[in-house]
């Protein structure tokens, strides 16, 4: 078991509704892995359960050799598993810089707050220009940068991104996937959840296809992109 994140028979859902029916997946250290699937396949439920926002009903989440199933989000984040939530979920009335600082509040990263802020502004110069502006006043693309920057402030080992391309212009989407590739080259493992199948499999080494709360297909990105079912269902080919 050398995987950084190893999910075994994970079941989860909301009150009275089962969404995930036994998910198995893993992310190795340094890898970028995509989880693709249609709306309602259970992608966000998966990320929220891994992030400690939802309690799993059964199964195990082994992260960095520690069992995380049932842990609250603060323990998950402290372990180095960062969560960029769907819809960004910024603190709209706080400044860009306050959003970032709050991302760095964890014990694991707090001491290097200033250095990490500089690093985020290096990656996203736009945010440096707008550091005093209210986060809610930014464009969708800039807000996604804040959401990623906020997660970076926690010095994550693995970053989970939930539909980061949602609602962005094509140019912004391209920039975003460039940034994700760059973060991965900087040593951060990535778990990317996307409806945007072509783009996310292009940036990821491997992928899983989620349907009705189950992994129906797994493999290298090249294999998935060549699979007839994926081509028909998700790429419209």
């Amino acid at each position: 078991m050398s995987a950084l994140l190893s999910v075994d028979q994970l079941q989860s859902g909301y009150e009275g509704v089962a969404i995930l029916n036994g998910i198995d997946l893993h992310v190795d250290r340094g890898e970028t892995v995509a989880v693709v699937g249609a709306n309602g396949a259970g992608k966000t439920t998966l990320i929220r359960t891994l992030g400690g926002l939802l309690k799993p009903r059964a199964g195990s989440i082994l992260f960095d050799a520690k069992e995380m199933a049932g842990s609250a989000s603060d323990r998950v984040c402290e372990a180095g598993l960062a969560h960029v939530p769907e819809g960004r979920q910024l603190f709209a009335t706080l400044s860009v810089e306050d959003n970032l600082r709050l991302g760095g509040h964890l014990n694991r990263s707090r001491a290097r707050m200033v250095r990490n802020l500089t690093r985020v502004y290096d990656i996203f110069p736009r945010l440096g220009e707008r550091r005093r502006q209210q986060a809610g006043s930014l464009s969708g693309g800039e807000q996604q940068m804040v959401a990623i920057g906020r997660a970076l402030m926690a010095e994550p080992i693995l970053m989970m991104l939930d539909e980061p391309s949602l609602g962005l212009s094509p140019i912004m989407v391209a920039t975003l996937f460039d940034v994700i590739g760059q973060l991965n080259r900087d040593g951060i493992s990535i778990l990317l959840v996307e409806q945007n199948v072509a783009e996310s499999l292009a940036v990821a080494a491997r992928g899983y296809v989620l349907e009705n709360g189950e992994v129906v297909l797994a493999g290298t990105s090249a294999a998935l992109l060549g699979d007839d079912r994926v081509r028909r269902a998700y790429l419209g080919l």
């Binding site: 926002l53 603060d74 323990r75 960062a82 603190f91 706080l94 306050d98 709050l102 991302g103 509040h105």
Partner: peptide, 18 residues
Amino acid sequence: KALHAAADNLLGARAIGI
């Protein structure tokens, strides 16, 4: 500021481990 954050966006606050 974490109090503001929780008032502003509870899901976002929990997602970053507040």
